[in-house]
Write a protein that binds this DNA or RNA. Structure first.
Lengths: 187, 187
DNA sequence: CTCTATCATGAACATGAACTCCGGTTCCGA
DNA sequence: TCGGAACCGGAGTTCATGTTCATGATAGAG
């Protein structure tokens, strides 16, 4: 994901961070629609500098999304700490969705029609998938999720909720409706 | 919706239809991404002719989406014929979603982040909303939908399912998960 | 302090897609 | 059959954005 090799001049490293921060904030707020000049301005740099650090817009976006996925992985790991399986699941689900709500670029990347890869890239770069699988399995084993619930279903409901994030906070309602169909035999 | 006024010359009317057909098919397949030249070529016309009939791309898109919404309204009306409330609801839901699956432009229009209006425009131009409300209410009254289910929730689950239409047929699974949380006290 | 490899800058360029324009064509009523 | 209003075509214009590159600045080792 545009790896920052070793020994970068101090100013260069600083600028790189500025770009990442500016892009992160703008992408989060307005998704892919922000333009390079805008990011440069907000970072207090010239456009050329952006291109010194990232090959093109796509690469910059990828870096940002990658960053978010790392945060998601940390979040999943934390959720997995909970001893109660249902708590773990709920923590993961709501944590994921609240993060998604705050990041339009992330949502668009996952909801867009041209996403052949993101979920796959994630699988290679992080162990988000495997942690999610474990959490789901724990909840299933405890009878808190229907028996046939799979990690793929997590993606499904996640996408569904994200699709309801424009406008009011309808996604919580969506999740509520889902939860009551998701719960297993116990309780 | 770019109303076809009275007395249009025969060739003009014919061409208008060609444009609508071509645009409908292309938009359905690839969404907003198709370009005007492409539509013109497929319709066997010059771009100029497109612009004679539709002010801009947006207007053309609006005409297409409007068309689909009329079809949706017919579908809802038909569903409402069923005497069993649950059958009516299911017919509407699956009919809606199957249509949506066949029309990418429609999906993008509803899922896109810049949709302040579509659902509102629909309310003004068709009575899709009111029919849906009636069908939902019938199902609620019969105890087939949870008591607090509202027409807004229909939009919610519909959006959720549409968000799962890229890739495999995951949307059916999504609906299944939802249904089992949607069903009311009876049965 | 010096020197140079590294970095920054932003006007200029490249690209692509929506839209316009007007000479040529066709329809249709009388 | 004829006149002219309505219509068509598609090359060219416009505009918006991503990307480059020649020039100037600077960090930081020696």
């Amino acid at each position: 994901m545009t790896a920052p090799e070793r020994s970068l001049r101090a100013d260069a490293r600083r600028n790189r961070e500025s770009v990442l921060d500016a892009a992160g904030e703008l992408f989060a707020r307005r998704g892919d629609a922000v333009q390079m000049d805008e990011i440069a301005e907000r970072a207090g740099l010239g456009v050329g500098t952006l291109y010194r650090h990232f090959a093109d817009k796509q690469a910059l976006l990828a870096a940002i999304i990658g960053r978010r996925f790392e945060a998601m992985t940390a979040l999943a790991r934390a959720a997995d700490e909970a001893e109660d399986p249902w708590t773990a699941f709920e923590t993961l689900l709501y944590g994921y969705l609240e993060s998604a709500q705050a990041d339009a670029a992330f949502r668009f990347a996952l909801l867009g029609p041209e996403e052949p890869s993101w979920n796959d890239i994630v699988a290679e770069k992080t162990d988000f998938s495997s942690i999610t699988e474990r959490i789901v399995q724990r909840a299933v084993d405890a009878g808190r999720l229907r028996e046939d619930f799979r990690a793929d279903d997590f993606v499904l409901i996640t996408r569904g909720a994200m699709a309801n994030m424009t406008g009011a906070g309808g996604w919580r309602r969506h999740v509520t409706l889902l939860l009551e169909g998701i719960r297993g035999p116990e309780r």
